[in-house]
Design a protein around this nucleic acid. Structure first.
Lengths: 198, 198
DNA sequence: CACAGTCTGGACCTGCTGGTCTATTTTAGT
DNA sequence: ACTAAAATAGACCAGCAGGTCCAGACTGTG
């Protein structure tokens, strides 16, 4: 990587990341080659290794970070303000919609499994995503407790972890079957649980 | 594949599948090459393609089927008799233990994501596993309802789907972080939910 | 024993893909 | 405008992994 990126440079770098992400969405991580990315982004091998000296691995990591960012963005503004039942409902719908749109390929998941084994940096991406996601759920639950909508006695931390797991599992199942039924069941049951704990 | 397998033949075929599964457990699907499998199982390329004419894909599918079978086996006998609270607790422990042992690599998951894109046969393996797993949960919940331990009004089908998703998500998170905290939270919260619905 | 089909071994081929290298053009700062 | 650094292009390389092939050793059945 050059010492300083010019405006043109950063633009190209970003174009490569975006193109790689798109290619991965379309055809999967495994099937995506560096040449594919070059073709799609109208760049050359030279540029690719100019901006990502560590090659494929570094590029994939950059894509993973981008994807992780999106996961949370796509749940906003709902996830950030889980203060009423209707906010939780909206969030639920947003999650279902987001993953139905994404369809049967989970770029992030495969990215992590391919990278994770070798790079600790990749594991960090997942860990941070989980932590942030869970934290927002936790805040939401605490908020509901503060407003008296959910029982004070409920273990908010554990519940947040469980809801996150349920969503994650619903998504995983959606990936392999194409059906969002489990994701919806997971979300609906989670909300029902919160309501029951009263 | 030959028309008829002799006893020796089936033994070799099985040895290849077992060896491939072991190799995948140790080093991951992506890093496992056909030569690795041959070396480990003391077989030759000739044999490998003799028993799996479609090569890597066919072998991987066979391994996936084997793994799927194990997932359910490892939860028995608990999963098959979820008729009391203590049975549910035992099941909970068995699941946690099984996946803690398995550690951070999910052969089945990666197998499916690598195969799923191309082969519908791979999707079938997952679909069947999910269906059978969920069915046993469903039976368990209905049983609890019949005995008056869980409210009749609870949507058993949806709850079974949600619990399965929660477990699945807990496992997924365990894979990428190495911590079973989410899996345990998911299971504990699921059981708490059943208890609350009374 | 014969012989047809199965089993085994391993050399070999080939396509692909990540990665290197060098030459040329463009940009930014003085 | 000059120059140093950055950006771009794309030919080229090397290794590897999946897959092919054929020759030879077993096996079991009439």
């Amino acid at each position: 990587m050059p010492k300083a990126l010019t405006a043109k440079g950063t633009a190209t770098r970003q174009r490569i990341i975006d193109g790689a992400a798109a290619e991965i969405h379309d055809r999967g991580v495994l099937a995506t080659t560096l040449d594919d990315v070059c073709r799609r982004t109208a760049t050359s091998k030279g540029q690719l290794f100019h901006y990502f000296p560590d090659g494929r691995e570094e590029l994939l990591l950059a894509v993973a970070e981008r994807e992780a960012e999106r996961v949370l963005e796509d749940q906003q503004p709902h996830l950030g303000q889980l203060t009423t039942w209707s906010a939780w409902e909206s969030w639920r719908d947003a999650v279902v919609l987001r993953y139905q749109r994404q369809g049967m390929n989970c770029p992030l998941g495969v990215l992590i499994t391919e990278l994770g084994r070798s790079t600790p940096a990749a594991q960090l991406v997942t860990a941070r995503l989980i932590e942030r996601w869970e934290h927002q759920l936790l805040v939401g639950i605490r908020e509901m407790q503060r407003h008296g909508h959910v029982a004070e006695g409920l273990d908010a931390k554990r519940t947040a972890a469980a809801i996150l797991a349920a969503v994650q599992g619903g998504v995983t199942i959606l990936m392999s079957t194409g059906s969002s039924a489990h994701l919806e069941a997971a979300l609906d049951t989670s909300l029902l649980f919160l309501r029951l704990a009263h």
